[in-house]
């Protein structure tokens, strides 16, 4: 699933000073989440301050186990709302990670009818022809 149509660029994330650590890690094939060392809490998406203790210097990037389960998903089967760089059908899954945060991504080698809420998945990384690095989710043993 989620195969690309050649010649149409994939949208790039807008990298700013708040989320740069996340995307730098992706570039190095690591999934990290923002973590407050004082509160021992994860926060996603990245932000400039811990919303629990209001500290701005206790936020660190902590590597994820990469494991989670599908919490919800959208299946794009027609071109009306799909992005044209993807062959249809493609799924976007919302995955609840072991750290408690949820992130979205595409799937790898999961058939459309296998994409279900509760499916255990793990992260993997891919290099795109345009030089950017993205992540996906593939099935894993529970």
């Amino acid at each position: 699933m989620a195969e690309y149509v050649q010649g149409i660029p994939i949208m790039r994330p807008y990298i700013d000073q708040d989320n740069q650590g996340y995307w730098d890690a992706v570039k190095n094939h690591k999934l990290v989440f923002q973590h407050c060392s004082k509160c021992d809490k994860y926060h996603h998406p990245p932000r400039p301050m811990c919303p629990s203790c209001h500290s701005q210097d206790t936020l660190e990037w902590k590597e994820s186990s990469g494991k989670g389960i599908i919490y919800s998903f959208v299946m794009f089967t027609t071109n009306k709302m799909a992005y044209p760089a993807f062959k249809l059908p493609y799924a976007v899954v919302l995955v609840e990670m072991e750290e408690g945060v949820r992130i979205t991504a595409n799937t790898h080698e999961i058939e459309p009818d296998e994409v279900q809420v509760g499916l255990p998945v793990e992260v993997m990384f891919e290099e795109l022809p345009d030089g950017q690095t993205l992540y996906r989710f593939k099935k894993r043993e529970a």
């Binding site: 709302m81 799909a82 979205t104």
Partner: peptide, 25 residues
């Protein structure tokens, strides 16, 4: 992309798609 940078690279674009994620759940 601004703001939707955690969705757009994966082809989740536009409000109907965003709402579909909530609706499935």
């Amino acid at each position: 992309m601004i703001r939707y940078d955690f969705f757009s690279p994966f082809g989740l674009i536009g409000q109907p798609g965003y709402v579909a994620m909530m609706y499935r759940r």
